[in-house]
Design a protein around this nucleic acid. Structure first.
Ligand SMILES: [Mn+2]
Ligand SMILES: [Mn+2]
Ligand SMILES: [Zn+2]
Ligand SMILES: [Zn+2]
Lengths: 135, 135
DNA sequence: TTCTTAAAAGAGAATAATTCTCATTTAAGA
DNA sequence: TCTTAAATGAGAATTATTCTCTTTTAAGAA
């Protein structure tokens, strides 16, 4: 259980009710959209302007408190899990699940220690695994 | 050099000038947006309605002639390369480059032949490699 | 080679996701 | 408590995409 106030404070961000709840939302929802975050806050706490949520999410990404994840939709999704990890994408619906696999990470790390990509400096590697969830 | 007409014909798609040029565009532009495709066609050939391009792109995806690729922007990008491959994403700009590495593919294939993911059937695995292009 | 017709394309309005502008409020430090 | 830069809110604007409806056309039938 992380202290949200302190998380903001450490990044020199003003501690506002809106920021606290947006952070809580992204930590509690799996790969939420901005809309998901807005619903989460409005249902539980208070009304909040959509522009405020978009602004806060962007700020958090810049400060490294959250990440964006990639999708093939015209919609942005966020991730509260900072540790590099992989994602399982449903080919049918919109479901995205985390996939954590340290053995795989070691294999990849080892592979790219030797194999260099010309003119490119790797920061982060993640797998996109597309397929079907068997309910 | 592929025969575009025949590609459409084989998928039982009516061969229209618009479809031929959209297909050509996706094959010739690296990871284009719908807007990129529209510009490509308007500059070289003829005017085309934006709705037509979106519709055609969607049809091509359904028929497996092209793929969507994932981004962390609210914009959809397409890929004319059907063979599974990986992508290098620039952390700064919008640049996305293909990364093809058969040795790596073998390693992954071997790894996931044994390692099963519970309740998930893998269709396709691709790496997202984020980092910096050294121009 | 016409003729027919279902499918495709086009124009433009509608919707969805995100960003912007500017007035008001507020966190935080003096 | 006071001050003020920064954050929020309301709503308009912009951007990407989809939809609706009319017109055009590819392709097979006659
Ligand atoms: Mn949209
Ligand atoms: Mn947008
Ligand atoms: Zn995740
Ligand atoms: Zn590609």
């Amino acid at each position: 259980m992380i202290n949200l106030k302190n998380t903001l404070f450490e990044k020199k961000l003003k501690v506002t009710p809106q920021r606290l709840k947006v952070l809580e939302a992204v930590y509690n929802i799996s790969h939420p959209t901005a809309e998901d975050v807005i619903k989460y806050i409005r249902k539980r706490y208070f009304d909040i302007a959509t522009g405020t949520v978009y602004k806060i999410l962007e700020t958090f990404v810049e400060k490294g408190l959250i990440k964006k994840i990639t999708t093939d939709k015209d919609i942005i999704r966020y991730d509260g899990i900072l540790k590099p990890h992989h994602h399982l994408y449903s080919l049918e619906g919109n479901l995205i699940k985390d996939y954590i696999d340290e053995e795989l990470d070691k294999i990849l790390q080892e592979y790219f220690k030797h194999k260099k990509i010309s003119d490119f400096e790797i920061t982060e590697i993640s797998l996109q695994i597309k397929g079907k969830f068997n309910k």
